[in-house]
């Protein structure tokens, strides 16, 4: 009987008694599809400040950058060039301002940097090919999509954002319970 590659690997992993990590393209050990390791670190840090972790999960825990990476070789292929050049411009700007990589900066410096970028006030010399405000808005928007969209696209792991917003998932009609001051007050009157 012919065994498919997937089935073979599954059996192998069972036989070894461990989880076998299978990268998307065999022979290359980066977990990223589009980003280089370094680019990914930059975007993870960036998205991590757009949606930081607090008592609830943030962008990093939700795999937001996995979402962006996945889309960049799919529906967002058209943004590849902007990401490549934009990330490079972020790194060059950070080196000039702090002599450090963006992802090595502390939280305050990262957010301060991002506020400058949002307002278009980073040194112009590195932003001749990509508009810093447009690129900020692009990563902002894609981070929101990765955090709040359906997990099937690689982000919003385990529906963490739905949990944060108190939106039950899966949605079982008639079985979900909602906290509501009004409803609670009415119940207490009874």
């Amino acid at each position: 009987m012919e065994t498919s590659r997937r089935e073979f690997l599954r059996q192998l992993s069972l036989a070894c008694g461990s989880v076998l990590f299978i990268p998307a393209c065999a022979g290359y050990d980066s977990p990223w599809r589009f980003f280089s390791e370094k680019e990914a670190r930059t975007v993870i840090a960036f998205a991590g400040q757009i949606i930081p972790a607090d008592q609830d999960a943030g962008a990093t825990d939700a795999n937001v950058v996995n979402f962006i990476d996945k889309q960049l070789i799919g529906p967002y292929t058209r943004f590849q060039e902007e990401y490549r050049k934009g990330i490079s411009a972020i790194e060059n700007s950070a080196q000039k301002l702090f002599q450090k990589a963006f992802y090595e900066l502390d939280r305050d410096n990262q957010t301060g940097f991002m506020e400058q970028m949002e307002a278009g006030k980073l040194p112009e010399e590195f932003w001749t090919e990509v508009n810093q405000r447009s690129f900020f808005n692009l990563v902002l928007d894609h981070s929101m999509q990765g955090f709040y969209g359906s997990p099937r696209h690689g982000g919003n792991k385990n529906y963490v954002s739905y949990k944060m917003m108190r939106l039950d998932y899966p949605h079982v009609l008639g079985q979900n319970r909602y906290e509501s001051k009004c409803a609670t007050a009415k119940l207490m009157e009874l």
Partner: peptide
């Protein structure tokens, strides 16, 4: 949830802790 992330009062911060707190506490 994603559409709601764009619904903010004028001048509200679009990202960071403020964004998240708004999303968490104001959605309903």
């Amino acid at each position: 949830p994603y559409l709601f992330s764009k619904m903010r009062p004028p001048g509200a911060k679009r990202w960071g802790p403020e964004h998240k707190e708004y999303q968490r506490s104001q959605f309903k």
